Simulated assay, not measured.
Amino acid sequence: MPANEAVSVTEALHRRRSVRAFSDKPVDPAVLEAVFAAAQRAPSGGNLQPWQAVVLTGAPWQRVKDAVAARIALGREGYQPEYDIYPKGLTDPWESRRFGVGEALYASLGIPREDKKGRLAQFMDNYRGFGAPVMLFLHCSRIMGPPQWSDMGMWLQSVMLLLVEHGLASCPQECWAMYGVTIRETLDLGEDQILFTGLAIGHADEDAAVNQWPVPRVGLDEVIDWRGF
């Protein structure tokens, strides 16, 4: 989408997707500044504005990738989870949704279930930001609770929709929280901070199959309970 094309909020919501293949085209820092300035209008309880972000490109971004790659090489011993990304004992319908979207992703790439090596290679691309030239790491003070994490989510959604408006793409990546200690140390964040998520930012590779498969959403009858209408 051209950056100068007018886009409504509804259009931005429909166009936004988690992009998993980016071009190497650089991102204009002035555009990012405009996006983050506008996103400051995101709501937060008591106007706490708990979100904090580090935005990286070039050598600083490469240092994070290298540091995390070293931890990944340790296998399970290298894990440093900041929190449980998914609830323990996840049941249906949520487990089926999670499984289904994963299978659809691999199917779009032609990677069958028995191709463990191929699936692992695709998963590892998470930790390269899918080739995105910019990575944002979102964190907050450890004193913040669930309501403030909700505030961070609203700020992040605002950023993603504004990126669409400016012709850019993104992919929120909670997977980085699996190596939170290493990332916080590499970014010189204090122990008083907790890493929430990464956000890969760049220009989508529009021809990549992984960016074209339809991501399903459940119907309103599964999420809305109408009363008094």
Rank of each mutant, 00 (worst) to 15 (best):
M160F: 07
G180R: 12
R98H: 07
A204R: 01
R15V: 04
V215K: 01
R20K: 14
L189T: 11
G110S: 06
E114G: 04
A73I: 07
G58C: 13
S23W: 05
D115W: 00
E82G: 08
I72W: 14
R76C: 04
L90K: 13
Y79W: 14
P60A: 01
V19F: 05
G102R: 09
G145W: 01
E114H: 10
D225T: 06
F22A: 05
L48W: 09
R128Y: 03
A73K: 09
Q62Y: 08
D84L: 14
E114W: 10
R63L: 14
A132E: 00
L90T: 05
V164D: 02
G100A: 13
Y179V: 00
F36Y: 12
C140P: 06
R63E: 15
S150G: 11
T182C: 14
G202Y: 03
D115I: 13
V181F: 07
S150R: 06
P29Q: 13
A12R: 02
T186V: 13
L163R: 04
L187N: 08
L90V: 10
D28I: 09
G167Q: 09
R15P: 08
D221N: 03
A169T: 13
L168W: 06
R98L: 15
P26K: 04
G167R: 12
D188G: 08
A208P: 00
G75N: 12
D92H: 11
M160R: 12
A30R: 08
A67C: 11
L162H: 02
D221F: 00
I85F: 05
D115F: 01
Q148Y: 13
D125P: 00
P112H: 12
F123T: 02
T91I: 05
L74D: 15
F123K: 11
M160H: 08
K25P: 11
A3Q: 04
G110M: 09
M152K: 02
L189H: 09
V54P: 03
Q173S: 10
N211Q: 01
V35D: 10
I143Q: 08
G110L: 09
F99N: 14
E206G: 03
A38K: 10
D221S: 05
W51P: 00
S18Y: 13
R15D: 12
A59N: 07
W51K: 08
L189Y: 05
L109M: 06
W155L: 15
L138D: 05
A204Y: 00
V159C: 07
S141K: 11
